[in-house]
Design a protein around this nucleic acid. Structure first.
Lengths: 144, 144
DNA sequence: TCAATCGTAACGATTATGGTTACATCCAGA
DNA sequence: TCTGGATGTAACCATAATCGTTACGATTGA
């Protein structure tokens, strides 16, 4: 596998719930979403649990249980989702500390940290430009 | 581990070779670099092999062997390095195809692909703004 | 020839992701 | 009060990427 499909599954999930609610339903179940995303309901529940901690969705238990959005898709950006599922940094530094006695080893981490921080910042800015409503509209615009 | 430290190790390696050559040495060995980066020489050789395929470094075998840059650090950007070590996409789509019979399942991949492509584009642009010479200068500017 | 270094295969450890099963918990509605 | 359906979560396994390590053949200047 390797790369993160978590943001993809999360966006899929939120768009699905949003459309389902727009069709008049109150709550969506993890099983329905898993069917659409072609994965396991537990995977969806795990992910939705993280989105709930971030305040993007809420769940009801018991009979007639399921998941619903806490606010409109237009007020959720991909950055909100990204932060909710807390991926690690895009680029990591050395896994073992470099040799501090070496000029390069001493200065490389602060130097790269600055560069990496700048890149993460632009990625976050880009993510914040797309709302889940944008995603849903783009989905609906795809020709059959 | 999780995140990629490959770009970090590659930048460390190139900066190290660049500084070493600037000090009058012809070639650097994987063992020297591994000492500075606190890793194993084989890890460095593997990485340098990929950089060589991209034309950034060259190697000499036999006695007095080692690695040298093919061009100045000022003409190498982090994007060159990034492309050389070929990381996968930043964000992946679904690992299993979503349900094409579902409106969301049908349109979600094209919709997200556009967003992801835009983000990768900005990341690449950012990476291309920093040369390895910039990195080396930033390293040397770190106070002891 | 020899010593140093690359080139590379092979194997194991660690980690992230995610698929699956299982089961306790909860609660609206009969 | 029961019960069915769904959540909440633990547990385990599979897969894959990265990395550390050992080992050894290939190369080549001295």
């Amino acid at each position: 596998m390797s790369a993160n499909s978590r943001l993809t599954i999360a966006a899929h999930t939120l768009a699905w719930i949003g459309l389902y609610q727009r069709q008049g339903h109150e709550v969506a179940t993890s099983e329905q979403i898993a069917g659409s995303a072609n994965t396991n309901p537990v995977v969806i529940r795990r992910l939705l649990g993280e989105l709930r901690e971030a305040g993007l969705v809420e769940s009801r238990r018991g009979a007639g249980a399921g998941w619903s959005l806490t606010r409109d898709l237009a007020s959720m950006t991909l950055l909100d989702v990204y932060d909710a599922i807390e991926p690690g940094p895009l680029f990591a530094l050395h896994r073992a500390s470099p040799d501090e006695g070496c000029v390069i080893g001493h200065g490389i981490q602060p130097a790269l940290q600055d560069v990496y921080a700048g890149i993460e910042c632009t990625v976050r800015t880009e993510l914040s430009k797309t709302t889940l409503e944008d995603v849903l509209q783009a989905v609906l615009a795809v020709p059959r």
